[in-house]
């Protein structure tokens, strides 16, 4: 690992910001999609009608911001360390759905989400190593 900058350039802070941007962008995308939802229109499967929602544009900006800070993080922290840490977003998103989007999550779905999170936590390191080599 190289010398780590401090302050706003601190890679761990940037990793946190990257995760926060992904988390908020997921919630904004869902809210934006709800605003323009046209499930009876077959063309809406392609999703382009989503661009009519300002929330979707905010989400796009956050996705770009998360991508930039992620690239910055990878200059200082190896992928097989940064990637498993970044997966905390897998816990935040379902909680955000429940707390901020008011989604009714059944016990069955919570169990499924928990298994996926445990599975992802188990494979995060080997997957990051594989991705580096692919």
């Amino acid at each position: 690992m190289q010398n780590r900058p401090s302050g706003f350039g601190n890679p761990r802070l940037q990793l946190g910001l990257s995760v926060a941007c992904v988390f908020v962008s997921e919630l904004l995308l869902k809210r934006g999609a709800n605003e323009v939802a046209a499930p009876d229109d077959a063309a809406s499967w392609i999703g382009i009608n989503g661009l009519a929602s300002p929330l979707v544009w905010w989400a796009i900006l956050l996705i770009i911001a998360s991508f930039i800070s992620w690239l910055y993080v990878l200059r200082y922290i190896p992928l097989n360390v940064a990637y498993p840490l970044s997966r905390v977003v897998d816990i935040l998103v379902p909680l955000g759905c429940w707390l901020f989007l008011g989604e009714l999550i059944s016990t069955l779905r919570w169990c499924g989400i928990a298994l996926v999170i445990i599975g992802l936590a188990l494979v995060a390191k080997p997957i990051a190593r594989m991705e580096e080599r692919l």
């Binding site: 999609a33 939802a37 809406s44 392609i46 999703g47 382009i48 379902p94 997957i127």
Partner: peptide
């Protein structure tokens, strides 16, 4: 855009775990 189309039809808490398939 495909994700945006799916989000118009399903809960995020339903769709999000499918990202595990990428692994």
């Amino acid at each position: 855009f495909l994700t945006l189309g799916l989000l118009q039809r399903f809960d995020l808490s339903y769709l999000y775990p499918f990202q595990g398939l990428s692994v």
